[in-house]
Design a protein around this nucleic acid. Structure first.
Length: 687
RNA sequence: GGGCGAGUGGCGGAAUGGCAGACGCGAUGGACUCAAAAUCCAUUGGCCGCAAGGUCGUGAGGGUUCAACUCCCUCCUCGCCCACCA
């Protein structure tokens, strides 16, 4: 990525954990606290490596359309995370309000502009002020023009020192300071509006400045109310009614333009186009697409983590480690405490750090930042394939053919929490590898399913805080691994959150014990088994094969196990059991209880592993009984039922239904209005 | 505030227009036992009834249908994710 220009060094302030002494990316911060140690993070400028994931934003968005095997809600989450919005940038000229003589001497000749991004250029005539993010670089350039620069600096300083946590908490109460001495000029009507700095505008999105339209934006509305700024309505929802409703809050919808000069009376959508074109002609604005997705801060100041394979050379600058020297391994050390300089612990390990520059063979130092934990999980599905072939040889392009054979991953199972982190990163890496020709497909995972979270006994998310964590090792110790597997599959629908219940586990344990026990019923000769019982059982067996096979395909594991329990109940009723039938039961059970299945398989004479056997096939002809139960309804209520031969004609079935005493009773003296007949299922009589 | 899910017995859940509660847990009664555990058998949605039977019932209310847990509309509750993105 470095060589393709997709990695760059940045010195911007990032989240920093004062306890771990490391920089953190947004994904390592939860509610303003360090994910690892729950210490509130602060902002700190640090040197860091950043990957240009934003270059892939559009493709990641576009390719979602083709990903039929992914759940819609995960794709939607990714769309929101990428956060594409189409709008317009527009430059507002800054004008000084100081007297002519003063300004002439102090101000340079060149004009200064504030550029803003908006998705609602149609509301431009409603602009009553401009807002800059505290981080905005233009502020320091305005020092000479701004009369209350001290006050402004103070506000900016305070905003900077607010931790992420405070900034979230204070989100509701808006604050800001006007930049006195300057005004911004609205190019559409040459109106001068005041300029504020306020931390409700984000430095990292768009241009870091917005045009405020309190009449049509809730945040601007709140701010305007607080600081008594004018509100000017310019979009009317019920045009052409002459009177627009009095505003009690911001109207954020679209409509027809009013109070907008030559644009009056046209629709928002049309106005957006016309106004943008007007700006483009004047060269003070243009169409613009913005994404919420930010570039990926890819360095951590931790010991553990893959070293970033770069070398800093005095002569050549940053140079990539040669492929033959990959991967760069961590030095083996006893201690790896964080440094107090904010550098990675690796920086202190001089033997490891000092190397020759691969280019000029001069004096070089290794990059000491390491990769975040997301790095490994972005390609481990490739690593498994590589591992199956050899032991991670570089270059990775060696594996091209093998990757083409195995990829994409058919079914990837993971939690929903990965929607906007791991699954975005993995897709990004895969697309990069596709671009350099290592993998043949654009996407890594064809199918995706999310398992439901297993909640604690109390219905809450398992956590130390609630003391409701269940340790799988303990469960395995008490009940056995197969019981745990069966229970986990049986406890509820795969994709839904379910509370853990150790009490309910005994059911799964009993089930496996009973499977074990009916071994004693197994006979090798058919003679002792009653023929009548056999055909009924045989039908159930084939129904079970069908049900279990389909349920596994559809991830309905709970009902698959239920079907096996039903089969077992029936088998237990038999005096004796054909060995083939018992084998079938074990095969169907084997995916859920692999250990016991294998052991039983050998117990009943299996020579090779059960996992070398073919999966049972369902014989469709043996599925259905000749007999069906017909339900009889009168006025929509079930009043009786009878058994009949399958495929009976409507007339005959109706006659039987009408002759039933309980049906006669419910019909009584009433006239029959209508009879609905559903073959082999229902006769519904309306009186 | 936005998005996505989910509401069915004492509990986990099943049924995707056609007998609601499959399967499992728990509970009750019985068998075995000196006794207990384990195991096995039976019963187990509520209400009325000795019973036969009746009646109500899938978060609430309405609608479509011969028939609705299932489809449509309105609302309530809970969970998860995102959240000042201009």
């Amino acid at each position: 990525m470095f060589e393709k220009g997709l990695a760059y060094e940045s010195y911007e302030p990032i989240n920093f954990c004062p306890s771990c002494l490391t920089g953190l990316a947004n994904e390592d911060v939860e509610d303003g606290k360090c994910e690892r140690c729950a210490t509130p993070v602060v902002k700190k400028p640090m040197r860091q490596w950043v990957l240009k994931i934003t270059d892939y934003a559009e493709r990641m968005l576009e390719d979602l359309k083709e990903m039929k095997g992914w759940p819609e809600h995960i794709k939607e989450a990714q769309r929101n995370w990428i956060g594409k919005s189409e709008g317009t940038t527009i430059k507002f000229e800054i004008r000084s309000t100081k007297s002519e003589t003063n300004s002439k001497s102090q101000i340079q000749n060149s004009k200064q502009f504030i550029e803003v991004f908006t998705t609602r250029i149609d509301t431009i005539f409603g602009v009553t002020y401009l807002v800059l993010a505290p981080e905005h670089s233009i502020i320091k350039n305005l020092k000479l023009k701004v009369e209350n620069f001290d006050e402004v600096s103070k506000y900016i300083e305070e905003a900077k020192n607010k931790s992420e946590l405070q900034r979230t908490d204070l989100a509701k109460e808006k604050t800001g300071v006007e930049l006195k001495g300057i005004k911004a000029v609205n190019p559409f009507n040459n109106e001068e509006v005041p300029v504020f700095v306020a931390d409700y505008v984000l430095g990292g999105y768009g241009t870091g400045a917005v045009m405020a339209v309190p009449a049509h934006d809730e945040r601007d509305w709140e701010f305007a109310k607080k600081y008594n700024l004018p509100v000017k309505m310019v979009v009317c929802p019920n045009y052409p009614k002459p009177i627009c409703p009095v505003l009690e809050n911001a109207y954020t919808g679209e409509g027809h333009l009013v109070g907008s000069g030559e644009f009056n009376g046209i629709k928002s959508s049309e106005a957006k186009e016309k106004m943008t074109r007007w700006l483009e002609e004047k060269k003070i604005g243009s169409k613009k697409i913005n994404y919420k997705l930010k570039d990926w801060v890819f360095s951590r100041q931790r010991y553990w983590g893959e070293p970033i394979p770069l070398i800093h050379c005095e002569n050549c600058g940053v140079v990539a480690v040669l492929e033959k020297d990959l991967p760069v391994k961590l030095p083996k050390v006893k201690f790896y405490e964080p440094t107090d300089t904010g550098e990675s612990p690796l920086a202190k390990m001089e033997k490891w750090v000092n190397v020759k520059c691969p280019k000029c063979k001069g004096y070089g130092k290794r990059e000491t930042n390491t990769m975040p934990q997301w790095a490994g999980s972005s390609w481990y599905y490739l690593a498994y394939i590589m591992r199956g072939i050899s032991n991670f040889q570089f270059p990775i392009s060696k594996y091209k053919k093998v990757f083409q054979h195995w990829l994409p991953v058919d079914m990837y199972v993971g939690g929903t929490e990965h929607a906007t982190r791991h699954l975005i990163y993995a897709r990004f890496w895969h697309k990069f590898l596709y671009d350099i020709g290592v993998v043949g497909g654009k996407e890594p995972f064809a199918g995706l399913k999310n398992q439901g979270l297993i909640m604690g006994n109390d219905g809450r998310k398992m956590s130390k805080r609630w003391g409701n964590i269940v340790n799988p090792d303990d469960v395995v110790g008490q009940f056995g691994a197969d019981t745990l597997r069966v229970y986990e599959m049986f406890m509820g629908p795969f994709d839904q959150p379910i509370s853990w219940s150790t009490d309910n586990m005994v059911g799964s344990r009993r089930f496996l014990e009973r499977v074990w026990k009916i071994q004693s019923k197994v006979v090798k000769s058919i003679k002792s088994v009653k023929l009548q019982e056999n055909s009924k059982l045989e039908r159930l067996i084939h129904q079970t094969i069908k049900k279990v096979s389909e349920d596994i395909e559809n991830f309905h594991f709970n009902t698959a196990i239920s079907a096996l329990m039903i089969l077992l109940n029936e088998m237990e009723k038999q005096d004796s059991l054909k060995i083939e039938n018992y084998k079938l039961l074990i095969k169907l059970l084997s995916p859920f209880a692999p250990h016991i299945a294998e052991e039983l398989w050998f117990d009943i004479g299996g020579k090779k592993s059960i996992y070398l056997e073919d999966w049972p096939k369902c014989d469709e002809s043996k599925l259905q009984s000749d007999e069906v139960t017909i339900v009889v309804q009168v006025n929509g209520k079930v009043r009786g039922s009878f058994k009949s031969v399958k495929g009976q004609k409507q007339e005959e079935i109706e006659n039987i239904a009408l002759s039933l005493p309980e049906i006669k009773k419910h019909i009584g003296e009433n006239k029959i209005k209508k009879i609905i007949f559903v073959k082999d299922k229902v006769v519904s009589i309306v009186v």
